[in-house]
């Protein structure tokens, strides 16, 4: 143990609290002796010199690993989940010949009637669409008129009225259905088996 260390430990023992790291100039009572504290450190170790070729090889390895993972992910992303309902099972494809109906041909008259019916249907749907559009216009106009009238009465009430209605979301609606619900209907027992495949 060097003398310096010894002195330093002695200063720690002293009752007067003296900040150790401050070296100040004293004007009245002279400070007799001071010492710098021990630095808790050691000289830096010399860095090991690595072969640059090895470092390069390691980096390359890392890179390859990541690239492989990315490729794997991309490959899976491109593969879409099959919809079993949309694919014809092999069982049916194999026996397709047995499954033909071999119906007698459709007569000229029926084909003609069908063509006429299609045209009639088109006209019917078009008229329906036009009527719907006119109806929507009419409803929109009625609302605009109400809002205009409201604005004439009071700007403030108008501003309140054109605020979005947050109660509307989420919007849920059911029906209409084919037959009305039966009151107090007890559905027959049965199990619900979900057989859809997990992906």
């Amino acid at each position: 143990m060097s003398i310096n260390n010894l002195v330093s430990s002695l200063t720690r023992l002293s009752l007067i609290k003296v900040p150790t790291l401050i070296r100040n100039v004293s004007l009245n009572a002279p400070m007799l002796f001071r010492s710098t504290p021990v630095l808790l450190a050691e000289p830096l170790k010399k860095k090991k010199k690595m072969d640059p070729a090895i470092i390069k090889a390691r980096e390359e390895k890392k890179k390859k690993k990541i690239e492989k993972a990315i490729r794997k992910l991309e490959k899976n992303a491109r593969k879409l989940k099959p919809i079993s309902e949309c694919e014809i099972p092999f069982e049916i494809l194999d026996t397709l010949k047995n499954r033909q109906r071999n119906l007698p041909g459709i007569s000229e008259e029926i084909l003609e009637n069908r063509a006429l019916l299609e045209k009639k249907w088109c006209r019917y749907k078009r008229e329906q669409h036009l009527v719907d559009m006119q109806m929507l216009d009419r409803i929109q106009f009625a609302q605009q008129k109400a809002l205009d009238e409201l604005r004439k009465e009071s700007e403030q009430l108008y501003q309140e009225a054109i605020q979005p209605d947050l109660m509307m979301m989420p919007y849920k609606i059911e029906g209409p259905v084919e037959t009305p619900p039966i009151e107090n209907y007890q559905s027959p027992d049965g199990d619900y088996n979900d057989v859809s495949k997990k992906w």
């Binding site: 009625a142 609302q143 008129k145 109400a146 009238e149 409201l150 109660m167």
Partner: peptide, 13 residues
């Protein structure tokens, strides 16, 4: 019941 929107849809005076 549920009222649709803050705006009135019709007007009469």
């Amino acid at each position: 019941t549920q009222i649709y929107s803050n705006a009135p849809c019709g007007f009469y005076k």
